[in-house]
Nucleic acid binder design. Sequence first.
DNA 1: CAGCATCCAAGGTGATACTG
DNA 2: CAGTATCACCTTGGATGCTG
Lengths: 117, 117
Amino acid sequence: MAKTIPDGKNELEPLMKLIGILSTPWTMLLLHRLHLEGPKRFGELKRRLGAISTKTLTERLRMLEGEGWLNRHYEPTVPPQVTYSITDKVMELDGVLTELVQIAEQWYGKKTKKGKK
Amino acid sequence: MAKTIPDGKNELEPLMKLIGILSTPWTMLLLHRLHLEGPKRFGELKRRLGAISTKTLTERLRMLEGEGWLNRHYEPTVPPQVTYSITDKVMELDGVLTELVQIAEQWYGKKTKKGKK
DNA sequence: CAGCATCCAAGGTGATACTG
DNA sequence: CAGTATCACCTTGGATGCTG
């Protein structure tokens, strides 16, 4: 989570929590992958994300699972297979995320070929 | 910003940036205050936010001003008066934020009087 | 394969003191 | 009043090495 989010006695607490989760490094990429590519195994996920460390990936996965954002399916084969997929809950964010993506694209995207960067 | 946001070669870059700004500690509270209480001076803002340090408040203010989210009005009186207010740009986020707040409230709020905490 | 345990470096924040 | 400058601390992610 974006760690030090003070708050505490404010009505924005829930929002802070949501934003906090969404903004934790790798989380968006993770959900994004799982969303448009379907269930994936640990190794596959790690490769697809690139530079993430097993430690961080594990933390994110556990955290999101705990929050009910991901499902963890363990297949006790040899070697073991663990597959992750997003829950229906996360789909509720689809609309808002789409809007956010649009605004983000509008503000920071360089689609207008006039990219500043 | 939620600091280490890797990305780099991904189409979610703009979103990451937006989320990153929104999730930077104190930013939401800051925008929230300015949004429903109107323009405010540095000191007032600091008092209203509670535990924020002058250093952090200054950083946030400068950052948001640089992003075009806030207006900084300097009045060279003695003592000097500096007033901050949100820009129209930020108002574009109003809708999405409202939605996000709803979902957040639904997922993490304890409005159902059955609050877990 | 999927993860856990360690060590360590880096960035961010709070506290404090000082200035135009 | 509105910052700026320092410093010390704490959280967090990366790199490694090891295991069922």
